[in-house]
Simulated assay, not measured.
Amino acid sequence: MLIVAMSPSYTEGGAIASKIAGIILASLSAGGGELSFMGLTHYYGQFSLAAWSSGTGAAGLVGAGAYALATNTIGISVNATLYASACLPALMVVSFFVILPRDPLRATSLDSYISVERGEHPGVDEADEAGIESEREESEGLLGVSVHSDTPKSVQINVEAFWWDHMQRNMQQLGKLFFPFMLPLLLVFIAEYVINQGVAPTLLFPLYSSPFKDFRSFYPAYNAIYQAGVFVSRSSTPFFRVHWLYIPSLLQVLNLVLLSLHSMFNFIPNVYLVFLVIFWEGLLGGLVYVNTFAEISDRVPEEEREFSLGATTVSDSAGICIAGFLSMTMEVALCRFQMSRGREYCRMV
């Protein structure tokens, strides 16, 4: 956020490169954070997943809403808004190291990976397991275990064989996760982020028929409304569950088709109906997200659950990435199509 805020204006050299560098750093941290924290919800019970999903929905809503309020309503500059927001990630440090109960994580050492597999990992007899257990109790290292140099060589070899076997099983688990969980999540994220990045910037109306003073205000408003829908649906699992994940995914694809056709042929009469469709888009995206991970928590065996939760987050990241490449072409194509029909609003943003 600081790199983007400190980047020069677009008329100066190096502006695009520095802004993209900031975006890349933000994406790396967001992806790594989601992968890590989603897996950690496994240790805090079912409600922690609902709390995590609701928190991510609230973050999107507050972030988009605060940005729209600061820049559109109050009139604060984009740079000043980013500077003021750059302190927010420090709250993650406080929430993890101060607020979050640590006992479930301290109690989870190598036992989560070895004890559950006792009797199944290759080439480890009872004597070796006793040696591993003794080393675990005497050591403080990664995951609470460290194999010292004086550990019997056979034990070191067997531990390595276990980790290799564990990795192979994880790859097999990915295949089991793909069709029931990863594919519908991938589809819904591709559809909704093509809408957000490629279609929404072209959903413009005459200013006199809208609540806005300039065309650049449409997009932040769409984003805030979308995030409101995401927040509502990501907070819904304690009250409402969706077990057929492909239904909302396919409905999201229909949203993409509807809004793309409107961008081309301008048949939705006013912006307020587009607001409703965007809110519905957020509801569908949030429903698939939270219910995908809820279904994994219900249907995947406990010893495979942490990996499954973390691995499935690849689908939403991949969906956003694919949508980004599609949107670069789609936004330009839709804008050119509108201009060919005499609607030049997209040039006035």
Rank of each mutant, 00 (worst) to 15 (best):
Q173F: 00
W163E: 06
S317Q: 14
V98N: 02
V194G: 04
V314S: 12
F212T: 02
W163D: 03
F267W: 15
P104A: 09
L326S: 11
S85W: 06
P184F: 03
V242H: 03
V62I: 15
A191Y: 06
L61Y: 09
Y246W: 14
W164C: 03
N79E: 15
L142T: 07
R241S: 08
T329L: 08
D150Y: 12
C335P: 01
S233W: 04
I99Q: 10
A17R: 04
L143T: 00
L258C: 08
F265V: 01
E135P: 00
F212R: 09
I132W: 08
I157L: 15
S9W: 00
G131H: 02
G22S: 06
V78A: 12
E140A: 11
V242F: 12
G144Q: 11
Q168Y: 03
A107P: 00
F37V: 06
L40C: 06
S260Y: 09
G45L: 09
L91S: 13
P122A: 05
F37S: 02
A5K: 07
Y208V: 06
A228C: 13
Q173V: 00
I322R: 03
V94N: 06
G22Q: 07
G63P: 07
D150T: 11
M348Q: 15
S7G: 12
M264T: 00
L61H: 01
L2M: 10
I76P: 00
V288A: 13
Y246I: 10
E140R: 13
G342T: 03
T41V: 12
F239R: 10
V188T: 11
N291K: 11
G57K: 13
Y193I: 01
S217L: 06
I24R: 06
P211M: 05
N255Q: 09
V159Y: 14
L82K: 08
L186G: 07
F337W: 14
G60Q: 03
M38Y: 01
W163N: 05
P269H: 04
E302D: 05
C321K: 02
R169L: 09
F218S: 04
L105K: 12
L142Y: 13
V116M: 10
T56L: 12
I99S: 11
I20F: 13
G319I: 02
V232H: 04
A84Q: 07
S315N: 10
V288I: 12
